[in-house]
Design a protein around this nucleic acid. Structure first.
Lengths: 349, 349
DNA sequence: CTGTTAGCGCGTTCAA
DNA sequence: TTGAACGCGCTAACAG
């Protein structure tokens, strides 16, 4: 396990590391034999292989990925483009991705694009320059995955999809989840349920809105459109919107379309001292840790975010290894309803 | 902005991309002129530069990082080794690091070592193979930063330091923060304050314990050693330990050494319906979002984790650019006490 | 300011 | 099973 001690240990001395040439000399074989012995399967007699490995160890040889990548015109690094690492949703997604990549001998180049199309595009260009064989992205714009594909990079979209794009995608079954959550409230007797939502231009928000509607339709309720409250992706904005929703629509329950909006909704309900769930019920899509710490704990939809990430990575690697038929793959991870204390029977007027 | 459309758009066609040669031909100059015009500052007349850039754009040229790195014997990618991306502390740290790296034209190779020395070492070897010029690590073992340094890689340790190691380090002033937090409780009249802590072998835990003690000493209180409750780095374990602490020591306040342990402590207090802060006060080192969402919100020490990350990145880049004197740098980010509702006067017996 | 030359370290031909 | 030769794409030297 001992590595070569660079004389000074100074980073300046990063210049001359041992190469296959050096290992070859040390082991008394040719450079190509070293390459084969170290990395390829077969094509090297056991004793030679042994000798080479020991020689490499002895002189502290470390493979040069740049040289290998240049030669083989690819790389083992995978690009991961997400919107906000500080949001536990993206952090969990990245954690799931990294877990699988690492186990399979790949590296993760992580870029936080802040949901900015320009940053996203810039990052995609960088990944192109690195010649990564694949990218996992929570796309801000359809242009990014398209550009990557056009340039021969395998792409898996996570969490959102764009219509008419032949890109592999892994997402939560948003419609089913939102429907289940809404049905849970309807079953509790709620008829005026507010939906706090920030966007419907992506499949994520669109699906959740669709599920919300579907639950109403299935129950024979017609939805007062005023109960669908649009806000922006920001806890403070959600709080203001919640306040307006409460005043204008008198809902007996509120569904938040994601974990960020739920923060604002909860803050507003607490601030107004509205008893949860006696006076009003609160539920959210996307279970994150704080939701089980607050009192009462929130009823949520767990979208298995880490597993979502793992699926993305597995799918991408399968593509890269050409193990899959050409046809576009859509993986829809079934979400799970977690009933906690924040939802209860509708108050009797 | 339009990129070359690969004929099929199929990832298989990733083979032949335009090279500097192609750009050179297109622009009617030599390859090295292309290189200079595109990347180096100076050494190219404005009109040539213009011509080259347009030619590159036209044929969809994208730099090959692997070739450049091989040639220049370095890379712009920086390695980041952390313990648990799902813990908001590490996520914030990584977010701060990434922000600076991206702004400075670097990439982040993120590895989650799960606090496992073997994984950490494996990751370090991979980073060596990638020839990264620097690594930021929350070290599990002193061996990892040492090995990297011995191999000529610049290292910045984040959050923890090991004695007698000449590695640059960026950390929260743990002793000062823990002391301030404890003094806040003492000022409220508490004399039996429990400390929930998982480790003291790293500078992090050691510093927090020292600060806890220092506050007692300064106030002329002698600390009952039974109040220092060791547990493991796990919310459930912390919960059990909290239970024992409550039973055996009858503290009127509890300080949690980090955000994970605080979860367990809070869960136990809630479960036992102990009024916070009337019956018992709770405070934690490392402010994370959920702490301001719970009722009452937790009094905490904010260690400015994102800024901690930014500092790490800035320091590392300065080292890489050789802008700093050789002497080891220790950056201690002053933490800030945030008083919220979870701490109050000690109950009168 | 520009062109020519020569590798960076590796893996993959092809022959032996 | 092994070795020799070559080139992946780029940029650092060196001339001019």
């Amino acid at each position: 396990m001992s590595r070569r001690q660079s004389p000074s240990g100074s980073p300046a001395a990063a210049s001359k590391r041992p190469t296959v040439q050096d290992v070859a000399r040390e082991a008394g074989v040719s450079p190509s034999t070293v390459s084969r012995a170290l990395h390829t399967r077969g094509y090297a007699s056991p004793d030679v292989r042994e000798r080479v490995q020991q020689a490499a160890e002895r002189i502290g040889y470390v493979l040069n990925h740049n040289a290998r990548n240049l030669r083989s015109r690819t790389s083992t690094s995978i690009g991961v483009l997400i919107s906000d690492l500080r949001n536990p949703f993206y952090a969990d997604l990245a954690a799931g991705i990294e877990e699988v990549l690492r186990a399979e001998g790949h590296q993760m180049m992580l870029v936080n694009d802040n949901g900015d199309p320009a940053e996203e595009m810039r990052a995609a260009e960088t990944l192109l320059a690195m010649r990564v064989p694949g990218v996992i992205v929570t796309p801000v714009t359809a242009a990014c995955p398209r550009m990557l594909q056009e340039n021969g990079v395998h792409v898996v979209c996570a969490d959102r999809e764009f219509p008419r794009q032949g890109v592999d995608v892994v997402l939560s079954d948003n419609k089913a989840g939102a429907r289940e959550l809404t049905e849970h409230l309807i079953a509790l007797g709620h008829t005026r349920i507010g939906l706090l939502i920030d966007e419907t231009k992506w499949s994520t928000g669109a699906g959740r809105l669709a599920g919300f509607r579907a639950a109403h339709t299935a129950a024979g309720l017609d939805l007062d459109e005023g109960l669908v409250a649009f806000t922006s992706f920001d806890a403070e904005a959600a709080r203001v919107t919640t306040r307006e929703l409460l005043r204008a629509q008198a809902p007996t329950a509120i569904v938040s379309a994601n974990n960020v909006l739920a923060q604002g909704a909860l803050a507003e309900l607490k601030d107004r001292r509205l008893k949860i769930p006696q006076r009003i019920s609160l539920a959210a899509y996307d279970d994150v840790p704080w939701m089980s710490l607050v009192q009462p704990a929130l009823t949520t939809i767990d979208q298995h975010t880490v597993e979502l990430g793992r699926s993305c990575a597995r799918l991408l690697l399968a593509r890269i290894r050409a193990e899959l038929p050409a046809k576009r793959r859509i993986i829809r991870v079934p979400p799970r309803l977690i009933v906690r204390g924040s939802t209860g029977p509708a108050p009797t007027p």
